[in-house]
């Protein structure tokens, strides 16, 4: 488990200070795929760089299975870093080395015997589906292929954790999808916990089990993806997750309810039932369903246009049909 405790990072500068992270508390459970989402400049890259101590936190702790990385001596830090793999938006491959030699690089660093390193590189390249490109140089590979090599390289030392900073941001949608599926496979088959930094909601939806929303250097909210997506608490999370919802709530009118569908049957039958059985016309102001991890999740905002009594009946009806709803102003 990776635990961040009161993590704060302040960049000093001539014109004052930039607070990139402020009192961030976060636990990344083993085996999870943890998404960190936020707008540009929110501090996502700083967060992931602090986890690996590429950036020294100004305050706070990074606990790796209980061991404080910020207090580790240089040599110990090197060892700890080997249990955390990292991949980047720009791949950061060694341009003068072949794909296989890139994968062997971390093994050379920890002085793994040559034969063993060679075999491990072959295994990993085959895991990421690039066996036939072993002897190609990075300049001969496409972006998606480069990221696959980078993933293989990051896994060479059998890390427990993999940090990805905008790993798919430089790739087209199809390639992005294939890389995400690869990450999921690695999570499933190797049990590697993955931290996925992204500014794209889609990435979180596709593979994450947990999500933290970062807003102006603070964590606005964090938790399991279903929970955060169903009941986003913070303004920023609502903005990121259900951008149209905000707009739909802006209008005037009667009392608004947000219905939440969590993996059950979703949508229309309930609304028509509402109209037929309670005789209340409900305006649908907003509806959005999406599939996350194989289940259907959705939000729907309806406006109840009846009188108080009718509206109360509508709420009862919804509750009786196991629809989760929340009053919205």
């Amino acid at each position: 488990m990776i635990e961040l405790k009161n993590l704060t990072k302040i960049y000093p500068s001539k014109t004052g200070e930039t607070v990139a992270l402020e009192d961030v508390d976060l636990s990344i459970p083993d085996g999870s795929i943890y998404g960190v989402i936020g707008l540009s400049g929110a501090g996502k890259s700083t967060l992931v760089r602090c986890i690996d101590l590429l950036e020294k936190p100004t305050r706070g702790q990074v606990l790796l299975d209980g061991e404080d990385m910020t207090a580790a001596k240089k040599k110990r830090l090197s060892e700890l870093r080997r249990s955390i793999g990292m991949i980047f938006q720009n791949f950061n491959l060694l341009e003068q080395r072949t794909a296989a030699a890139n994968v062997r690089f971390p093994l050379e660093l920890n002085k793994t015997p040559r034969g063993e390193a060679k075999q491990r590189a072959e295994e990993l390249l085959s895991l990421v589906g690039l066996s036939e490109k072993a002897e190609a140089y990075p300049s001969q590979l496409s972006g998606g292929q480069k990221q696959r090599v980078a993933i293989a390289r990051a896994l060479a030392t059998r890390p427990k954790y993999l940090l990805c900073d905008e790993a798919t941001s430089a790739l087209d949608p199809t390639t992005t999808e294939s890389i995400l599926q690869l990450l999921k496979k690695i999570n499933r088959e190797l049990g590697v916990a993955i931290v996925v930094i992204t500014h794209e909601m889609k990435v979180v939806e596709r593979i994450c089990t947990h999500v933290a929303v970062l807003d102006r250097s603070r964590i606005a909210e964090a938790g399991r993806v279903e929970d955060v997506f169903s009941f986003p608490q913070s303004e920023i999370a609502k903005q990121l997750i259900i951008p149209n919802l905000i707009r739909s709530l802006a209008g005037s009118g009667g009392s608004k309810l947000r219905l939440v569908f969590r993996g059950g049957g979703s949508g229309e039958p309930v609304i028509s039932g509402l109209a037929i059985e309670c005789g209340i016309p409900a305006n649908i102001l907003f509806a959005d369903t999406r599939r996350i991890d194989g289940k259907t999740f959705g939000h729907m905002v309806i406006e109840l246009t009846g009188d108080q009594k009718q509206n109360a009946a509508a709420r009862e009806y919804l509750a009786a049909h196991d629809v989760i709803f929340k009053e919205e102003l």
Partner: peptide
């Protein structure tokens, strides 16, 4: 590329290894 140096650091390379295995070979041409 500073990113490549950073990647090596994240893999636990010490400064000597970074000079020897990253800076010099990558800058060879």
């Amino acid at each position: 590329d500073a990113g490549v140096v950073e990647a090596a650091k994240s893999m636990g390379a010490n400064p000597f290894q970074i000079v020897w295995k990253v800076y010099l070979p990558e800058a060879k041409p």
